[in-house]
């Protein structure tokens, strides 16, 4: 995926839909955002993501760790007077970051687990014991359907992205190891 081209497409689509100046003067999404309220707007500020995208400056944002603090609650999108899909824009930016190999470790690990077991939270012996206490049937520890997910990962960008994320993490670990 050509990241710069895609960023440009997103910016063009967005700027056709909204009144840029009233967005820059608004900030309703920031007030609605629970992460902004918790960290302070100087650290996490969803409108900044919108503005950077509109002004063609989102490329640097893809490297910013705070981009991943979003809790996906969609309060921003729901409150925006211009119906800017802020949370969906953040999701797009996450996807683009991933195609450069940038993603928090636990998110990538969970997606790898989903491809292996079929579920985000896999069944376990211990939960099957708790199920038994309640008279519920045990859950088979292996799902037969996960092979379909592997096929989907191969037919989309997902596999490539997971691979790049892993390579980048390994390269960073090697670099950190080399320093000490």
């Amino acid at each position: 995926m050509n990241v710069d081209k895609r960023l440009q497409e997103i910016a063009e689509k967005l700027s056709k839909r909204i009144d840029t100046l009233s967005c820059y003067a608004c900030g309703t999404c920031v007030a609605a955002c629970p992460i902004s309220r918790e960290t302070g707007a100087e650290i996490y500020h969803p409108r900044r993501f919108v503005r950077a995208t509109l002004e063609g400056e989102a490329r640097q944002l893809l490297e910013a760790p705070e981009l991943w603090l979003c809790t996906s609650c969609h309060a921003c999108l729901e409150h925006c007077p211009q119906k800017v899909p802020v949370s969906e824009l953040i999701l797009e930016l996450h996807n683009l970051a991933c195609s450069l190999g940038i993603a928090p470790k636990d998110i990538a690990t969970e997606v790898e687990n989903i491809l292996t077991s079929g579920w985000a939270l896999a069944p376990s012996e211990s939960v099957n014991k708790r199920r038994e206490q309640l008279g519920l049937p045990p859950i088979p520890l292996k799902s037969r359907s996960s092979k379909d997910l592997v096929k989907i990962a191969k037919a989309t960008e997902l596999n490539k992205r997971l691979k790049r994320i892993k390579e980048r993490r390994e390269a960073q670990a090697a670099e950190a190891g080399g320093e000490t």
């Binding site: 996807n95 991933c98 989907i152 989309t156 960008e157 997971l162």
Partner: peptide, 9 residues
């Protein structure tokens, strides 16, 4: 998690 890596997948 999943759509954040690839929402199309």
């Amino acid at each position: 998690t999943f759509p954040h890596i690839d929402h199309h997948a």
